[in-house]
Design a protein around this nucleic acid. Structure first.
Length: 577
DNA sequence: GCCGTTTTCGGCCCGACTGTTTTCAGTCG
């Protein structure tokens, strides 16, 4: 079992224990373990097989959970879970995904009405039986029906790219009206997470009521889910939930910390506050209540809050309780963490010569506009017929064209390259005699996605061993919500990348984000370097580097880890094999 | 179930909103 599976199993156990009314702290322990495991950069099975005692050194993993992990990595299943899950019918736990339905109500529904899955819940609601239960009324009942309908319509998760655009829309809509002091995204969107469940927006405003009023009338609002004096939630276009909170200017920083999360990060810094006999909440940092009245210590800015807690400001992308709090306390946060303006060029781009929408000139003009120092044009090789992939001769002509056009753009260095397909056996779709004529060779998989792990791993490594390959594009091959990642032994792939000086791509396309943050952390540990590329097929996509930089920051990557932050001369050196 | 410069017991983050209540439980973040 891999970390993802183990983490989700622990999450399921927590859900079940909650329904069973178990000790809340036990439940919390499972959730914490789950979240910590999901954020690990190494596979638990590897850690276990190397040294079983290491497992209980992971925060939140004690004797009991370590034993459960041992069972999972050795046998592939967990008896404890099987027993628990056996008590509930299939599909019952999915009911926790229904908004407004928590463990308590769920238990009641099962005990009183015998509801065991979403279909039965819907029927019970439509028959009017739910409203009869103690503690539930007409409103609960009709809300549940609405919620069920929504769940059936979509999965409830949104690509950060999509959600980010909507958030920007809402923010500019709110700002236009005036009266807003400061406003920005919070939550997982601010932390740069690739997939989000909702959008959080935080503001301070002179007249909160007016701001709330405007918010709930955002065009496209299909439902006002909650509306109070300082916070409200809407659903936009029947899908994405947007939460809006207004706070006082004086506590904006504390609120921003609070609403940015992550939850685990907040728990940890509250803990630190407590140790200092302070209390931290969304209204500020206060002297603890035990001493009588609470006096504010900080709150206006995030910097102030972190400072009073004895640490430096922590970039939002790092706030996942992956050691950032401890590092900040020691003053050892990475000083040269990659910044949003650091990328000097895009090294994976397509034009109309294969499946892109841009002509060479359009592409280069856009690159100049963006202030890039260099780019690489990397069209497809022949295997990708559907994308108009080129054979060797065509490619050489194309390279001539690129160099000709590039002469008109003196301020921009242009690398003539290719995105060459990795064939089934790990050889490349173009012979070396063509590859050696190019400035950059990006290798990628676009076929045979379902090969087994050993085959797939060998395939990728063999491709990277080709001396002309400079970069591995979208290494895991996943398409979020559409296609699972390739079966790959990532550690071996990363090691081979480091050994062969092959750059690993952080592909910023919203549906890819590939490598992801956990991969990047691990790959960095193994000595690999990266390139943040958009893989753009049109000019708008060329603006998408932000998500890749966020991912790199989440992985604590420094500028020097990412080669397309280098000056051109250094880049050329970095690409030498 | 985890954890420990107050350690092997006794803590474990906390406030807003909703719906159902008539003082609060449940849910959410």
């Amino acid at each position: 079992m891999d970390n993802k599976e183990i983490a989700s199993l622990f999450q399921d156990i927590a859900d079940i224990l909650e329904i069973k009314g178990e000790n809340v702290f036990k439940i919390r322990a499972y959730r914490r373990a789950s979240s910590n495991i999901a954020g690990l950069s190494r596979q638990l099975s590897d850690i276990y097989h190397e040294d079983p005692s290491e497992v209980s050194n992971i925060p939140g993993i004690g004797k009991d959970l370590a034993a459960k992990i041992a069972e999972m990595v050795t046998t592939g299943h967990l008896e404890f879970y099987s027993e628990l899950a056996g008590e509930f019918p299939r599909g019952f736990l999915d009911l926790l995904d229904v908004g407004g339905l928590g463990p308590k109500k769920l238990k009641k529904l099962r005990d009183v009405l015998g509801v065991e899955n979403i279909d039965e819940l819907e029927k019970a609601c439509r028959d009017g039986k739910v409203a009869g239960i103690e503690g539930m009324g007409e409103k609960t009942q009709s809300k549940l029906v609405q919620e069920i309908v929504r769940i059936r319509e979509n999965e409830g998760r949104f690509l950060a790219g999509t959600a980010g655009l909507l958030a920007d829309e809402v923010i500019s809509y709110l700002s236009e009206a005036g009266g807003i002091g400061k406003i920005e995204k919070a939550g997982s969107l601010r932390r740069g997470v690739e997939v989000v469940g909702d959008i959080d927006i935080l503001a301070w405003a002179g007249e909160p009521e007016k701001a709330i009023e405007r918010f709930v009338s955002f065009p496209g609002t299909s439902e006002v889910m909650a509306r109070g004096q300082t916070r409200a939630s809407i659903r936009v276009r029947g899908a994405c939930q947007v939460d809006f909170r207004i706070v006082d200017k004086q506590c904006y920083g504390a609120a921003l910390v609070y609403f940015t999360g992550s939850k685990q990060h907040n728990v940890k810094i509250r803990h630190i506050a407590k140790k200092k006999e302070l209390k931290l909440n969304e209204y500020g940092l206060f002297t603890a209540a035990a001493s009588g009245e609470e006096k504010p210590v900080a709150g206006k800015t995030e910097q102030e809050v972190y400072k009073k807690l004895g640490m430096s400001w922590i970039p939002p992308e790092l706030r996942e309780d992956r050691g950032e709090v401890e590092a900040a306390l020691r003053g050892e946060l990475p000083k040269d963490l990659i910044e949003y303006g650091d990328v000097r060029g895009d090294l994976h781009l397509h034009t109309v010569d294969t499946d892109g929408q841009m002509t060479l000139e359009q592409l280069m003009r856009k690159a100049v506009e963006k202030g890039y120092e260099y780019i690489a044009v990397t069209n497809h090789s022949k295997l990708v017929r559907i994308a108009g992939g080129m054979d060797g001769e065509e490619l050489l002509e194309h390279v001539d064209d690129i160099r000709k056009v590039a002469r008109k753009f003196r301020q921009l260095k242009v690398l003539a390259g290719v995105e060459v397909d990795i064939l089934k056996d790990g050889t490349l779709d173009l012979e070396d005699k063509f590859l050696k004529e190019l400035d950059i060779v990006v290798a990628a998989i676009h076929s045979n996605f379902s090969a087994d792990k050993e085959t797939q791993t060998k395939r990728v490594i063999r491709a990277m061993e080709n001396r002309y390959v400079n970069m591995l594009a979208h290494p895991s091959g996943r398409l979020i919500t559409k296609r699972n990642a390739l079966e790959l032994d990532m550690d071996r792939v990363f090691r081979a990348a480091a050994e062969n000086n092959v750059m690993l791509e952080i592909n910023t396309h919203g549906q890819r984000v590939d490598l992801n943050d956990a991969h990047c952390m691990r790959a960095k540990e193994m000595g690999a370097r990266f390139s943040i590329n958009t893989d753009a097929h049109d000019t708008a996509q060329m603006d998408g580097t932000g998500l890749g930089i966020a991912t790199a920051r989440r992985a604590w990557l420094r500028k020097k880890d990412v080669i397309n932050t280098y000056k051109f001369d250094e880049l050329k050196k970095a690409l030498k094999r």
